[in-house]
Computed example of a mutant assay.
Amino acid sequence: MEATTYSNFRKSLKSFMKQVNEDSEPLIVTNKNKEEDIVVMGKDDYDSLVETMRIIENKYLYNKIRRGREQLDSKSNYHSWQSDKR
């Protein structure tokens, strides 16, 4: 994850916004007071992160996805096993 100073970030805001969105990599913006440091990320990446957190926090939905994944994995193993028999 790249980092830049607040002063540099302010001078090159448009460039950093473009970079963060194109690279899908967050950017740390540092300040003299470490408590004022921030992380900048693209909106699409933020939305994806929030959605992932909501899924993980929703036990019913998380378990449903996990069970579906297990079913897919077992079918893949079954089909792989069937192919090996031939």
Rank of each mutant, 00 (worst) to 15 (best):
V40H: 01
L27F: 00
R67N: 09
I28V: 11
T52L: 11
R54S: 13
G42N: 08
R10S: 07
N77E: 14
I38N: 09
K34S: 05
Q19A: 06
L72S: 12
V29R: 00
S48N: 13
S83G: 02
D73V: 13
E35G: 11
Q82P: 00
T4C: 08
L27M: 04
F16S: 03
S12C: 02
N77D: 09
E35K: 15
N8G: 02
R66T: 07
E35S: 13
N31Q: 11
V20L: 05
S80R: 14
M17T: 06
Y60K: 13
R69D: 12
N63F: 05
K14C: 01
N63S: 14
S74A: 15
K75G: 00
I38M: 10
R67H: 06
E25R: 06
R67G: 09
N77C: 04
D73H: 11
K43N: 02
K18P: 02
Q82W: 14
H79V: 07
L61H: 06
K32R: 11
D73C: 07
S80K: 12
K14F: 05
R54A: 14
L61C: 11
T4P: 02
Q82E: 14
D37I: 02
Q19F: 00
K85N: 05
E2W: 08
K43W: 08
I38R: 11
G42A: 13
K43H: 03
S15E: 08
G42E: 00
L61K: 10
M41Q: 12
S7K: 13
K64P: 00
N58L: 11
K11Q: 14
